[in-house]
Simulated assay, not measured.
Amino acid sequence: MINYIGKVTIYVSNQEEAKQFWTEKMGFVCHEQPMGPNFKWMEVRPNEGAFTSFIIYEKELMQKQNPTANVGHPNVILSTQEIEKAYDQMKENGVEVGELQVMPYGKMFSFKDQDGNTYLLREDK
């Protein structure tokens, strides 16, 4: 029935700041298109071939469109096969990262985006 997780919406304070974070600090690619006079559809993904993407949507706009919408941050876990390399690169790019944790089931660390939302990056081998 369901084959993939296609898109995850991330509500942000400012689309352009979020775009800058995801493209410049995280190395994601961005696709955007106008969706009316004051809004643009924006998606970021790790690379051109990635199926899953984040929809970057402004909190204020969503709250105007739907006052009952939950614009809280989802719990998102991203994957890598080279955790130490990713950790070092993100620190070098100025991303706020937590401690690299080594657990019996794998390595991981948390990081924050431009709005202070927390994500987890986990090594999958």
Rank of each mutant, 00 (worst) to 15 (best):
T23M: 14
E24M: 09
E60I: 01
E16F: 09
Q15Y: 01
V8Y: 06
M103Q: 13
N93P: 04
Y11D: 01
T23N: 09
W41D: 06
E92V: 05
Y11I: 00
V12T: 15
Q81H: 14
N38Q: 12
K40M: 14
P67R: 07
E96W: 00
A18G: 13
P104L: 03
F21N: 11
S53D: 04
M108N: 13
G106M: 08
E60L: 02
T52R: 08
M103R: 14
Y11R: 03
K107A: 14
E96Y: 01
S13D: 15
P74V: 06
M1I: 05
P34V: 10
N38P: 00
E60W: 00
M62N: 03
E84H: 10
I56R: 04
I10D: 07
K7I: 10
V29M: 09
P34R: 12
P74L: 08
M26S: 02
K112L: 02
K85C: 06
V102E: 14
K85G: 04
Q63K: 15
I5A: 08
P104Y: 02
K85Q: 15
Y57I: 00
M42E: 01
Q15L: 02
G6D: 15
N14V: 03
I55Q: 07
F28W: 13
E84A: 04
E60Q: 09
M90N: 05
Y87N: 05
Q33P: 00
Y11L: 04
G6V: 03
V102A: 11
E17G: 05
F28S: 07
V8K: 07
Q65P: 00
K59L: 04
P34D: 13
G49Y: 11
K19R: 15
G49V: 08
Y87M: 08
Y4C: 05
S53T: 06
N117Y: 03
S79T: 10
V76K: 09
V97Q: 06
D113C: 08
K7H: 02
M90Q: 12
K107Y: 06
D124M: 13
S79M: 13
E43S: 06
S53Q: 07
R122H: 09
K85D: 11
L121S: 04
Q15R: 05
Q81S: 14
V12E: 11
N93H: 15
V76M: 11
T9Q: 11
G72F: 00
V8T: 15
F51C: 06
V95L: 05
M35F: 09
K7L: 10
P37K: 12
E32W: 12
N117E: 03
E123A: 08
D88P: 00
S110H: 07
G36E: 04
L78F: 15
Y105C: 01
V71G: 00
